[in-house]
Structure formats: C-alpha cells, structure tokens
Amino acid sequence: MTPEARVAELHLELPPAPEPVAVYKPLVVVERMAYVSGHGPLRPDKTLITGVVGRDLDLEQGKAAARQVGLAILATLRKHLGGLDRVKRVVKVLGMVNTAADFYDHPKVINGCSELFAEIWGPDNGVGARSAVGMGPLPGNIAVEIEAIFELND
C-alpha cells in the first residue's frame, strides 16, 4: 500500500503545511534526500499544542503532540514533493521536547511521531535513526519540535 493510501485508510487529517516564521525553507531536497526543518505541533485549525511536558502536559499528551508534529511534517512533504509517495524511507528524526527539569521520558514522547511514520511507511522504511532530547523553552512554548530527513524514490 502506498503512503498516500495509508493516510486515507487511517483517516488522518493533516494540518495545512506550515509557513516559515523566520529565515529558512521548510524543506530542502538535495539529490535523493529531503531535509525537513523543525516543525511544531500544528493542528488543522492552525493552533499549536503548547506547554511543558511533565508540568503542563503529561506523557500521553506529549506523545499526542509529537504525533501532531508528524502530521505537520507529512503536510509539508505532500505540499513540496507533490505527494507522500515520493518518499522511500525515513532516514533520521530529531525530536526536541519542551520538558520540566525532572522529566526523563523524551524517547516515549517522540514515539508519537515515530509510530505515525511506521504506520505510513511500514516498520522498515518508516523507522530510521533517531534522537530524542529535552530542552526548553521551545519557540512559542510549543510542546515538541521535530526535524527529519527522508530518502526519496528514484
């Protein structure tokens, strides 16, 4: 099943592809690699999920925010590549979690995005290398920011 077909089958609602809020490009393609800039948890109504995970948001809410970031990344890929079927595989994900000083489950939060990508591209092509770190504050007090690298089909 193609990535676009999986999105339809899962009834996923993608937000609008976010526009840059500073001096950067949302996506840059070099040869067969697509580099996606950091994205926040943008909802379809254009609002963002904000708050500090471990203080304002619990683990499950943080994980849901990371999944929402994944949906925003899918929207950017679709907009700039013409469709998700151009993506062959996930190469690398860097997840940054806006966390309280005593919160240590950053990898579990970023699983929200990683699990989404695995649903779209499968357990082999949808899971790449990954880092998950805590930091704060993030821009606009967003709960999660994620950047990713994808390999494109020929």
Score class of each variant (00 low, 15 high):
79 K>V: 05
72 A>K: 05
48 L>E: 08
103 F>A: 01
87 V>H: 14
123 P>M: 13
69 V>K: 04
82 G>E: 10
89 R>V: 07
102 D>K: 06
147 E>C: 15
100 A>Q: 00
140 G>P: 06
53 V>M: 11
29 V>D: 05
76 T>I: 03
136 G>L: 10
91 V>C: 03
130 R>V: 07
31 E>L: 10
38 G>N: 12
23 V>G: 07
80 H>K: 13
32 R>K: 15
123 P>G: 06
40 G>S: 11
120 I>C: 07
29 V>N: 07
91 V>T: 05
62 G>C: 15
90 V>Y: 01
57 L>E: 10
112 G>P: 04
42 L>Y: 02
63 K>A: 08
133 V>P: 03
80 H>R: 12
16 P>S: 06
150 F>Q: 00
39 H>C: 15
76 T>A: 09
94 L>I: 15
26 P>H: 01
54 G>H: 07
146 I>N: 10
38 G>R: 15
75 A>K: 07
15 P>R: 00
138 L>R: 04
133 V>M: 13
94 L>K: 14
70 G>F: 07
55 R>P: 00
107 P>Q: 05
91 V>L: 01
110 I>E: 06
133 V>K: 08
148 A>F: 15
58 D>A: 14
20 P>C: 10
103 F>T: 04
34 A>K: 06
72 A>P: 03
144 V>G: 03
121 W>D: 09
99 T>S: 14
45 D>P: 00
70 G>E: 06
97 V>L: 14
82 G>Q: 13
138 L>F: 01
47 T>N: 01
28 V>A: 12
133 V>A: 10
83 G>H: 00
48 L>K: 02
34 A>I: 11
32 R>C: 03
26 P>W: 00
127 V>I: 15
101 A>S: 05
46 K>W: 01
73 I>N: 02
61 Q>V: 14
38 G>P: 13
114 S>K: 14
115 E>V: 14
92 K>S: 11
138 L>V: 10
110 I>P: 05
77 L>W: 08
87 V>R: 11
76 T>E: 02
125 N>M: 09
47 T>P: 00
105 D>R: 04
58 D>I: 14
24 Y>L: 12
149 I>N: 04
110 I>G: 05
135 M>V: 11
136 G>H: 13
122 G>T: 01
40 G>D: 10
121 W>N: 10
95 G>F: 08
85 D>C: 12
32 R>E: 10
137 P>D: 11
30 V>Q: 12
97 V>F: 15
19 E>D: 05
18 P>Y: 02
39 H>I: 14
77 L>V: 13
53 V>K: 07
114 S>D: 09
44 P>T: 00
81 L>F: 15
71 L>A: 07
90 V>F: 06
116 L>A: 04
17 A>S: 12
135 M>E: 08
132 A>V: 09
143 A>N: 03
58 D>Y: 15
30 V>W: 09
92 K>I: 10
23 V>I: 14
85 D>E: 12
83 G>C: 04
94 L>C: 08
73 I>G: 02
93 V>Y: 07
81 L>K: 11
